[in-house]
Amino acid sequence: MDKIPILKIGHFLMVAIQVDLYDRLALNLEADLVQAVSKTGARGVLIDISAVSIVDSFMGRILGNIAGMSKVLDADTVIVGMQPAVAITLVELGLPLKGVQTALNVEKGMELLQQKLQITGEEESEE
């Protein structure tokens, strides 16, 4: 079956969703990501959804789950690149994605994660 690749970049994990998500695939991504956060001790997760044209309540819930579970494992989650049409639709659907941070693009998302890390002042203390 299809699998969405997870990349490790420094302290962070990055996922770019390039395919049309069906529910099973989204559930697998959730499980894989949480596994990866735990295994690598990553401090941040960046999910690029710029190629995603539909986010419904199921997919929205998965994104929320990923953020919540990563938080428990001490990692921040940033969703980047949401298309305007998707954002407008999500608001109308009634899904504000509370607790999920967002950024305009990958670059800005990385900056945001980096900032968070600096605020907690832990970057240097890594061994």
């Binding site: 529910d23 044209s53 539909i54 986010v55 419904d56 309540s57 199921f58 298309q83 305007p84 049409a85 998707v86 407008i88 639709t89 109308e92 659907l93």
Partner: peptide, 17 residues
Amino acid sequence: GLVNQTKLITAASELSR
């Protein structure tokens, strides 16, 4: 238009699920 398309397909996605 793209926004209305997205709204329609999202609604349809909910109902088919």
